[in-house]
């Protein structure tokens, strides 16, 4: 895991994001509907529209327009949102932490769940525990997260009344001072456990709904890779040389088996953030996915571009992190890239 490796990944990422920005920009210009009309309203006089077109550089050729757009975007200026009438960048700063917090909790749930279930499943392969886990993981993979959201709502909020149904915090509680924008963490930072516990109860259901799919998927991958590695000679060899069964399982089998799970984790995390919009809608979670969804419904092109680009950045960053972790787990990757690949 060398500096060269990281630098290379960063350069790759810049190109990925540039490519993404071009696609976003083009789509935003191609979709039917006049952004100026949308911005100024249907009843604005023609001279206002003309001035606005000039102001937004819409009369220039496309590549010039892209240049202006990119210059502003790099400075964090994505224009004004048509819906909230505020700077898009400001909106994103406000909504991103909520989604990120949700995705973090969901990641934690899916990793712990997937590893436990995957390991149990592989350990008791083809026995009843494995069969039960496999049936549920099939269900988990094919059921969309919003279905889980509705089921959980019904059970835990309406029938059992254990958890609050919607929002991030109960009425009557005040949000902790904003540091990270993630309520549970901000509450812990000021030591307000009351707020933390309330926010925590709010986040469990949406995080769990979001986690189910990837948890099921990763449990299956963990099981498959453990079962596969179990037949490898190096496991037989470790046993033949007297290494105890528990050490064989905990060390010599687990570590190589985690590589595919971790590799897919990054994709799941980023995809989870992007796909969170239905869950965010159902739980009235003030997150970026829901914001992006609303932006799309109202053709708020500035906001759409910014949201997609933000998710793009998150995707790229998360995948760099995953590469680092995988490199730590797997010397084959670490050493081959260190050589300059």
């Amino acid at each position: 895991m060398s500096v060269i490796f990281l630098a290379k990944r960063l350069v790759h990422s810049v190109f990925v994001l540039l490519g993404l920005s071009i696609v976003i920009f083009l789509i935003a210009r191609i979709v039917p509907g006049d952004p100026v009309r949308l911005a100024v309203g249907a009843r604005a006089p023609q001279w206002v529209v003309d001035n606005m077109r000039e102001h937004m550089h819409l009369n220039e050729p496309l590549h010039i327009q892209y240049g202006y757009w990119l210059r502003d975007a790099l400075q964090g200026d994505f224009g004004i949102s048509l819906v909230t009438r505020r700077g898009v960048a400001k909106d994103i700063r406000e909504f991103l932490p909520a989604t990120f917090e949700l995705a973090l909790y969901s990641l934690f749930i899916s990793v712990t769940g997937a590893l436990s279930f995957g390991i149990i499943s592989a350990r008791y392969k083809d026995r009843w525990a494995d069969n039960v886990i496999r049936i549920f993981s099939y269900l988990g993979v094919v059921t969309p997260s919003f279905v889980f959201a509705i089921i959980f709502l019904l059970i835990f909020a309406f029938v059992l009344d254990w958890l609050p149904a919607i929002g991030r915090l109960s009425n009557g509680l005040t949000l902790p001072p904003r540091v990270t924008g993630m309520v549970t963490i901000d509450a812990l930072l000021i030591g307000d456990f009351n707020v933390f516990w309330d926010a925590f109860k709010h986040i469990i259901m949406p995080a769990l709904s979001l986690a189910m799919g990837s948890m099921a998927q990763e449990a299956r991958i963990t099981r498959a890779s453990m079962a596969d590695n179990l037949t490898k000679d190096y496991i037989a060899s470790a046993r033949a040389l007297g290494v105890s069964e528990s050490l064989v399982m905990r060390r010599f089998l687990l570590k190589p088996s985690l590589i595919p799970t971790v590799s897919i984790l990054g994709l799941d995390f980023a995809a989870g953030m992007g796909n969170a919009f239905l869950v965010e809608l159902i739980f009235n979670w003030p997150g970026l996915s829901r914001y992006g969804m609303n932006a799309m419904l109202s053709k708020d092109l500035n906001a759409i571009s910014a949201v997609i680009l933000t998710f793009g950045v998150v995707f790229v960053v998360v995948n760099i992190c995953v590469d680092i972790v995988v490199g730590q787990l797997d010397p084959r990757i670490r050493l081959s890239t260190a050589k300059g690949d």
Binding site: D233, Y234, A236, S237, I259, P331
Partner: peptide, 14 residues
């Protein structure tokens, strides 16, 4: 103890 056929496979890669 035992030595296995394929030394590529008999050592744990990680």
């Amino acid at each position: 103890t035992m030595i296995f056929q394929d030394p590529m496979a008999a050592l744990n890669p990680v």
